[in-house]
């Protein structure tokens, strides 16, 4: 699908007029259509009536906290949501991601980063069907046969390692929180046991990264979670 024929509509909910203008310039320059509002309530109404393809939501809104907007939206919609926040709001970010936000972006942000996040989000919506295989670097994953090879050689992964790899790859380009991974792989009781994740992530990097100390694909989002990047 080329950008010429598909122009996704993005709804921006932010009370700072300058940020909105900035987003409009960036997004329209990349071929998105932009709709904007400065209030949470209005944003929810717009999302319901205009059915945008994605939402960019600021966490600090004057009328309704961003997290509240997100929760109410998630009651009826799976629309992709990108959270905008400032540095030092890690707790709010995690809460929003756990409440169903698809990704986050910290202010100040670069245009390239913004567009990459948006596109990763939209890709999930556009191609929900699972691929049978994936290639990154010199690693290839065959989902059907559950086989992972690196530079042609089969890499032995434990079931949990494979589960972690698959989860990250499925959400590629997007952040996934510690809590989400732990719940998925170890069950709801292990949601606080971050150390499990650290250990398995180290194993995965050692097996699949060329330089495990400076990982290229399996990126750490400090204090929040992990992100798998193809490039």
């Amino acid at each position: 699908m080329s950008p010429d024929t598909f122009h996704p509509e993005v709804l921006v909910i932010d009370d700072e007029v300058q940020i909105r203008r900035l987003l409009r310039v960036t997004l329209e320059g990349a071929g998105f259509r932009v709709r904007e509002t400065d209030r949470g309530e209005l944003g929810l109404a717009e999302a319901a009536t205009k059915r945008p393809d994605a939402i960019i939501l600021d966490l600090g809104l004057p009328d309704l906290p961003g997290i509240e907007v997100l929760k109410r939206l998630r009651e009826w919609s799976r629309l992709p949501v990108l959270i905008l926040s400032v540095r030092g709001q890690e707790a709010d970010k995690i809460e929003a991601l756990d409440a169903g936000a698809d990704d986050y972006l910290s202010k100040p942000f670069g245009g390239g980063e913004l567009l990459a996040r948006l596109r990763a989000m939209l890709r999930r919506v556009q191609s929900p069907e699972e691929e049978s295989s994936l290639r990154f670097g010199d690693v290839e994953i065959d989902f059907a046969r559950r086989v992972v090879t690196k530079a042609g050689a089969v890499v032995k992964l434990t079931p949990k390692e494979y589960g972690l790899l698959r989860l990250l790859v499925l959400h590629r380009g997007r952040v996934i929180t510690h809590r989400q991974i732990l719940r998925e792989l170890w069950g709801p009781k292990a949601e606080e046991q971050t150390q499990y994740l650290r250990v398995y992530m180290t194993h995965l990097r050692q097996k699949l990264e060329n330089d495990p100390n400076q990982p290229r694909f399996f990126r750490t989002e400090s204090g929040i979670g992990y992100r798998f990047n193809e490039e």
């Binding site: 940020i19 900035l22 960036t26 100040p108």
Partner: peptide, 10 residues
């Protein structure tokens, strides 16, 4: 600052 920085990035 975020606006300036983001604008400059673009």
């Amino acid at each position: 600052l975020a606006v300036i920085a983001s604008a400059a990035e673009n």
